[in-house]
Design a binder for these strands. Structure first.
Length: 439
RNA sequence: GGAGGUGUGGCCGAGUGGUUGAAGGCAGCGGUCUUGAAAACCGCCAACCCGCGAGGGUUCGAGGGUUCGAAUCCCUCCGCCUCCGCCA
């Protein structure tokens, strides 16, 4: 979340960011509410602490009097403390309400935007940074991955529907193997060529973890939630590895020398896709369960922006080695995600539909770190450096299913077969071409 | 699932109702000494909240309770460890 102190000190500045994000007017009103609640909170804390200071002093006296055997005098002081405690209880009750309201509102505000974020309302206003490769044909010209995959017998959407309805998939034979090859290739690329540490993490997380990265409290409808508590707490299927991986160090104070921490994780991702009815209903583009290899950085504020560029480069390297045409766009104010200050999307060329997002690389400043109390102790600036919130970043490296789609659509040959990108062949037992089953 | 144990500062580890926010040690930082380093010795070293500041408050797994006062007593939950059972 945004530093509540900053909201109280410069509410208009915060509102300007919200306007650039095209947030609702009532979100702007929340800023004013936070300012008022902060003021009341301060008053309550002052008065309560004063009373507690008095109580602590009197209690100390009572202890001394008891030791000296002056019981009567002690009893008088006891009565005095008890009346103070009554007042403290009233103040604490109000403080609990005020504090709860304030933090609820703070948790609901999106991050401040980086100054370079372009103006704009939606994805049509995103700014193209660079393109790579030669897109084949016009959007819509190409055969869709559903047709290609079904014809080759490697994608079976009818049978997946028998299991779990729409927005699921079954891959068969070379299709399943291609999915697995991509996972292994991505992990090897980022571990061996880019120096990430591979981690495997839980696919279920508690509410607190999802709050830490910002999926909650606002976007609970996008996640699948367990009907029963898990180890005593509300739990969700992860929508992305970002959640468990970034939360790995929640509540810790890291040494600056340990930074940057760079993790790569392969996980399935589960999304309820509530509210996306009618969009991308066919095929593998928008599904309830998909695979993703995710890159996560924990670093210092000073290094974060350079890290962000490197992160984008690492994701882009995968597309380039696979020879998939793509472009990099910077998201406009209205399109940057809730937790991010700035975001680059990698969009792969799909002959059947044009450019589609295949990776989203975000810088979160200290927004997530503050929510999960993730800090580091600076060592560079002398002895008694206070802990500071770290900066977190992440990006897909890449979304596996969409990569498979891109390979099918971009590499389909006039004879209907699909050539496998060279870098994947070692992962496919040397297979070079996917031909129809039985052909 | 059954039985028992345990949870203290960056780490280890004392502490069972009253100057204990917490002994001691390690690590770290500064200094003395040294040509330099090591060793030895001296000193400093938690986080968060409110406050311009002085200062005050909170925090000993989490939450609740008892008490004038709780790291210390009671209850619930969570984590970890050991044994038994079950299981991929």
């Amino acid at each position: 979340m945004i530093d509540p102190q900053r909201i109280a000190d410069a509410p208009d500045e915060v509102k300007a960011h919200l306007v650039k994000r095209h947030e609702d007017p009532h979100t702007l009103a929340d800023v004013d509410a936070i300012v008022a609640l902060s003021e009341r909170r301060r008053e309550l804390i002052s008065e309560r602490d004063e009373l507690r200071a008095t109580r602590n002093a009197l209690s100390k006296q009572i202890g001394a009097l008891f030791k000296e055997g002056r019981r009567d005098e002690a009893e008088v002081l006891k009565t005095q403390v008890q009346s103070g405690n009554a007042r403290i209880e009233v103040l604490e009750h109000e403080l609990e309400v005020v504090d709860g309201d304030r933090s609820r509102l703070c948790m609901g505000l999106p991050n401040l935007l980086h100054p370079s974020v372009p103006e704009g309302k939606g994805d049509e206003d995103n700014v193209e940074i660079r393109t790579w490769g030669d897109p084949r044909g016009q959007p819509g010209d190409g055969e869709s991955h559903v047709e290609i995959g079904t014809r080759l017998g490697i994608l079976d959407l009818e049978r997946s529907a028998k299991l779990t309805g729409s927005r699921f998939w079954v891959l068969v034979g070379a299709g399943a193997r291609l999915e697995r090859a991509l996972i292994n290739y991505f992990l090897d690329l980022h571990v061996h060529e880019h120096g990430y540490t591979e981690v495997m993490v839980p696919y279920l997380v508690h509410r607190s973890a999802a709050e830490g990265t910002g999926q909650l409290p606002k976007f609970g409808q996008d996640m699948f939630r367990l009907a029963e508590p898990l180890n005593g707490a509300d739990a969700f299927l992860i929508p992305t590895a970002e959640v468990p991986v970034t939360n790995l160090h929640r509540g810790e104070i890291l040494d600056e020398a340990q930074l940057p921490l760079r993790y790569v994780a392969f996980t399935p991702c589960f999304r309820s896709e509530a509210g996306s009815a009618g969009r991308d209903v066919r095929g593998l583009i928008r599904v309830h369960q998909f695979h993703k290899v995710e890159l996560v950085w924990i670093t210092t504020p000073e290094q974060a922006e350079a890290s962000h560029q490197q992160l984008v480069g690492h994701a882009e390297a995968a597309l380039q080695q696979l020879r998939l045409p793509h472009r990099v766009v910077e998201l406009c104010g209205g399109d940057v995600g809730f937790s991010a200050t700035r975001c680059y999307d990698l969009e792969v060329w799909l002959p059947s539909q044009g450019y589609r997002e295949i990776s989203s690389c975000s810088h979160f400043t200290d927004f997530q770190a503050r929510r999960m109390s993730l800090r580091y102790r600076p060592t560079s600036e002398g002895k008694k450096a206070k802990p500071r919130h770290a900066h977190t970043l992440n990006g897909s490296g890449l979304a596996v299913g969409r990569t498979l789609v891109a390979i099918l659509e971009n590499n389909v040959q006039p004879d209907g077969t699909v050539t496998i990108p060279e870098v994947l062949r070692p992962y496919m037992g040397g297979l070079e071409v996917i031909a129809p089953v039985g052909a």
